[in-house]
Amino acid sequence: MEERRAAQKAAIDAADRLFYARGIQAVTMDELRAETGISLKKLYSLFDSKQAILLAVLAHRHELWTSGIARAAGAVSTPRDKLLSVYDFLHGWFTDGNYRGCGFINAFGELGATVPAVALAARKQKDSFQRYVAGLVEQAGAPASLAPQLAILAEGAQTTAAISGSADAAHSARDAAEILIDAALQR
């Protein structure tokens, strides 16, 4: 059982690297086999299709995202700073040297119109993030209407950073978030 989990993890990690760097449709199962050293027969015993591997990659990315923003929020103490920590997390992500956009947005853009499971996974991840931000907004005592505004800033920063190749979008989004948060808390 442990060997199976290790092989699944190796396949997910390799698929994530390849899909993120080159796009999902550009990567073949044979390339994934070569990257992992796992035979095609074994890969298909671990995941019954390339789509199944992609969905596992997206689930893994969701875990990384969720734990990353939770870690950033856990490093600060005030509700306002917890909200702003999202943008600090984004800046760290944008500057890690490997940033190519949000994996969910990329997958949705590439396959969302033709693979309903990919569209659903992307929607679930975005909904989860919005619920997370809504919880932080509630803790801060701000109006619920602030949550989607802050989430949109974060989503826009991700897209802008991917296209521009600059992490400045995180700072701009953080600056705008500070204005929105302070205005909402003064109501």
Score class of each variant (00 low, 15 high):
L90A: 12
G74T: 14
D48Y: 10
G109R: 05
G109H: 04
I53P: 00
A72P: 03
E31T: 13
F89W: 07
T78K: 13
V86Y: 03
N98G: 08
K50M: 06
F47G: 01
T95M: 05
G68Y: 02
A73R: 12
A26T: 14
T66D: 11
A52P: 07
L90R: 09
A59I: 09
F108V: 04
F104D: 03
F47D: 01
L111K: 00
P79G: 09
W65T: 14
V57W: 01
L84I: 09
Q51W: 03
E110P: 06
A52E: 10
S77V: 14
A34T: 15
D48L: 08
L58A: 09
M29T: 13
L46K: 01
A107R: 05
E110Y: 00
F104S: 07
T28V: 03
V27I: 13
S85E: 01
A56N: 11
G97A: 08
I69S: 00
C102P: 00
K50P: 06
H91E: 14
D88Y: 01
A56Q: 10
Q51P: 00
V57G: 03
F94G: 02
E63W: 10
N98K: 11
H62V: 11
L83E: 02
A34N: 15
Q51C: 03
A72Q: 01
R80K: 11
